[in-house]
Simulated scan of single mutants.
Amino acid sequence: MIYFISDLHLSPRTPGAIRLFKAFLARIAHPDVARNNRLYLLGDCFETWVGDDDMEDPCHQEIIAALAQASAAGLAIHLQHGNRDFLLGQDFARAAGLTLLPDPYVLSTPQWQFVLSHGDALCTDDEAYQQFRAQTRRPDWQAAFLAKPLRERLAIAAQLRQQSEVAKRGKSAYLMDLNPGETDDFLRQHGYATFIHGHTHQPATHDHIVDGIHVERWVLADWSEDRGEALSWDGAQLRRESLLPS
């Protein structure tokens, strides 16, 4: 089985979501099935990530330990950056036993082809966000930010998070969704592969007709304290699975 999840937004403020995630990992990394399973985390696994030197945080340690245990059992884990955790680096990847992927990423299986992305790069109607995104992905900006003391980075992240929540309340819904034209171009550029992404917190399955070709777009659900969702591929079909506390 191949599993796709995104937008867990794990933090010390979401202990329920962390428990759900650990239980999900334990199930798909069970010794009987782990080596036949793959997991793709499509961004925003963490609510915020200000650098790999913050791995000593107890919450981060708990999540990293669960990922490393699942990886050691044989589960192949792959992760894309989201808009909240784009500073996850190779030190984190080594500690968690996972592989960082570019965005977008084309996943080919014997039966089908998928293109995976967090999704935020296609929200092009939100020009202010795209300017911020372009700035924070620059190597010089990241180097300067990571050179700041950890406490200062945490304070900056908290301020930015608060500003983002305020800004979202004043934005039209279309600004926070994928631009239709850009999405069709993206599907065309990636060979009309089935598109799986997160970011918008609007789980749905969309049908696109691009150059006369039917293409599916699956939007992953965000997680909360009392529910999660995984999309699975068994070699024949995609299926949504609700994850609830035991």
Rank of each mutant, 00 (worst) to 15 (best):
A72T: 10
A76Y: 05
L8W: 03
D211R: 10
G82Q: 10
Y129I: 04
T183N: 11
L101I: 12
F186Y: 06
L175I: 06
G181I: 10
D185S: 11
A158H: 11
L88Q: 01
E225M: 03
H78D: 08
T194V: 13
E127R: 14
Q135R: 15
M55R: 14
T99P: 02
F46I: 07
S224D: 14
G97H: 12
G191H: 14
T183Q: 11
E165M: 14
L88I: 15
H81D: 10
L39H: 04
S164H: 13
L220S: 04
S6D: 06
G198V: 00
T14Y: 01
I213F: 13
Q130R: 06
V215L: 06
D185R: 13
I209P: 00
Y129W: 05
R137P: 06
F21Q: 01
Q80M: 15
T194M: 06
V115M: 07
A147E: 12
Q142V: 08
S11P: 00
D226T: 13
L243V: 10
E182T: 09
A17V: 04
S117N: 09
A167V: 09
D140T: 08
G228W: 01
S232M: 03
A155N: 12
T48L: 07
A65M: 04
E182H: 09
R217D: 08
A93T: 02
L25A: 05
H206L: 12
L75V: 13
F92V: 09
P31F: 06
Q90C: 04
Q130S: 03
K22N: 11
I156M: 15
L122G: 07
F132G: 10
E182C: 04
A157M: 04
L122R: 09
G181K: 09
A17P: 07
G198P: 03
W218A: 02
A236S: 12
D52N: 09
S224P: 08
I213T: 15
